[in-house]
């Protein structure tokens, strides 16, 4: 736990944790609204978004990438809704049509364009590069109060921190309308709440979280964190507030444990190289969900005996 840890592990762990929390917060509501797969769809269409942004601007700067990915996510949501209504197709199939087609378009554009100069490829998009987000200028724990070293933090860290804070703030500010429109849409409408605007804003917030997290950790963690921690939390309690806290705890646990297992686990087992941190974080979150499915106190549907 000395200088090496601060240099090579502290920032990836922080980024992973913040990304996991940023996704888990909107994930709670998506799960309850049966829109869990929106996260899946968004994380697939992020790829064409960043490819188009790259082709338009010619750089891999963060802002155009984020804007492109956000626009693609929004386009996907609009397309899904349009196809669902115009074609009278069930939402799952409409989603499947849209995100696979957009993803295919992204891959094709990527193969057609010259991206060999920059670090932009499909595998990176899927798996992330959490391991490379290290803090080389750090010399030890005291670097945390050294302004020179702090200015060399990986840019992904402040970015994901801002997004995680934004998600937390939005959750707190819009707690009541979100809760009402999630559990009883008719009642919320009767109270005069803009129900469809709330639904769309939630999806946009999820897209923002997905894009920011995707930038740092790849699309697998994004899908896993949208769904696994909130789903596990849902099996722990009947109170929404408690569920959100559980989901944050599970997200943090998955990120920290996953990163440590990926980085140090193979060494303990006698191998000499680490495994994918993003993949391991997703796996740990799955194990947590599995345990919750087996032992969670509120795992059964109301009226059905647990384990029945």
């Amino acid at each position: 736990m000395g200088a090496d840890f601060v240099q090579f592990s502290l920032t990836p762990i922080l980024i992973g944790t913040l990304a996991a929390i940023a996704c888990a917060l909107p994930g709670n509501f998506l799960i309850l609204r049966r829109q869990a797969l929106i996260g899946d769809a968004i994380s697939h269409v992020v790829l064409p978004g960043i490819v188009v942004a790259f082709l338009v601007t010619g750089t891999v700067a963060a802002l155009p990438m984020l804007l492109g990915a956000g626009a693609a996510a929004l386009l996907a949501v609009v397309l899904i809704e349009a196809i669902r209504r115009l074609g009278r197709i069930e939402p799952g199939a409409a989603m499947g049509v849209v995100f696979t087609a957009l993803f295919a378009g992204g891959v094709l554009l990527l193969e057609q364009s010259d991206t060999s100069r920059v670090h932009l490829d499909v595998e990176h998009a899927l798996m992330g590069n959490l391991e490379t987000l290290i803090w080389l200028r750090a010399t030890g724990w005291d670097s945390l109060i050294d302004p020179v070293a702090l200015s060399h933090l990986p840019v992904e860290l402040p970015r994901i921190a801002v997004v995680a804070a934004l998600m937390a703030a939005l959750t707190v500010i819009f707690w009541r309308p979100l809760k009402l429109s999630t559990f009883d849409e008719g009642f919320a409408r009767a109270l005069g709440l803009p129900v469809s605007a709330i639904g769309l804003s939630l999806v946009i917030a999820a897209a923002v979280a997905a894009v920011a997290a995707f930038d740092a950790v790849g699309s697998i963690i994004v899908i896993a964190m949208f769904i696994c921690p909130p789903a596990a939390a849902r099996l722990m309690t009947n109170s929404l507030a408690v569920q959100v806290w559980w989901s944050v705890a599970f997200a943090t646990l998955s990120a920290v444990l996953g990163y440590v297992l990926a980085g140090y686990g193979p060494l303990w087992l006698g191998f000499d190289s680490a495994v994918s941190a993003a993949g391991m974080i997703a796996t740990v979150s799955g194990v947590i969900l599995g345990l919750a499915c087996l032992f969670g106190p509120h795992r059964a549907r109301v009226g059905v005996a647990a384990g029945g």
Partner: peptide, 28 residues
């Protein structure tokens, strides 16, 4: 069938976790 999670949550969880585990195996 066994828990109160809806099918979409189950699909998303299985999809991402299996894929994550697969990526871990690929890096090995």
């Amino acid at each position: 069938r066994r828990t109160r999670l809806a099918e979409d949550a189950a699909i998303g969880a299985v999809l991402s976790v299996f894929f994550g585990a697969g990526v871990v195996l690929l890096t090995i």
